[in-house]
Design a protein around this nucleic acid. Structure first.
Lengths: 113, 113
DNA sequence: TCGATATGTCAATCATGATTGACCTGTCAA
DNA sequence: TTGACAGGTCAATCATGATTGACATATCGA
């Protein structure tokens, strides 16, 4: 449910760039973000922030005329990571088991870890 | 890099549905997938499989006239999960300290880093 | 060989989203 | 109060992608 919007939000490279900036700084005003992001202008950043906000990946704190954005890890972000684990970690376990069996039988390097 | 295509591939709900089917079955032919996926027709499934294939999230094994698809956890999938961790786990650690007693009832293996 | 099956590809259509300039609102500082 | 600043919203443009029917290719079975 929430993961739906989150996956969509994560698909855009500009939004991932915004998230990366927010990840290294604790909080960030919109102007700071605009200074950091070169690929789009202020309107674009604002538009992407709306998507990130409504997806639940970031939170907004209003203080005077500033709006401070920060990453919200308690929402769909966790859901997304758990979904990816359930999608890929099973096959990862299978691949690991198959690789160990293969290395046990024949010393053959088929997978690059 | 590889994660770029993977994030894009993961954004579509039909592709996530395909991945979910592949996650519960070990291998799957295209026809099996088409039977499982109702939202799009055979051409759509094939188109989505191409995106998933070129993103590195799935692998293809050809056998006669069948093509068996399976999840590839050794590629960008791992990269995506790691990137999401680096984006959200810092803030998650901060929030987790405050809610550590709340999450004590569920077994979390996130601490085994 | 011939027909049926499995699957990919192409072209066209259609919907969605990214980007931007212009404009509006609210807030601070003088 | 007024001007400057922070930020959102709107309408328009433009690019990208999702979907499908038609066609092509390859393989199996009779």
């Amino acid at each position: 449910m929430g993961a739906e919007l989150a996956f969509d939000a994560l698909a855009d490279p500009v939004r991932r760039e915004i998230l990366a900036v927010l990840a290294e700084r604790d909080e960030c005003s919109v102007t700071e973000l605009v200074e950091r992001i070169d690929s789009v202008g202020r309107t674009g950043v604002s538009s992407h922030l709306r998507v990130l906000r409504s997806s639940g990946l970031v939170t907004e704190r209003k203080d005077g005329r500033y709006r401070y954005y920060s990453i919200d890890p308690t929402g769909p972000a966790r859901e997304v990571i758990e979904m990816l684990h359930s999608l890929f970690q099973g096959a990862l376990a299978d691949a690991g088991r198959a690789a160990s069996e293969a290395t046990a039988r024949t010393s053959n390097e088929a997978r690059s870890a």
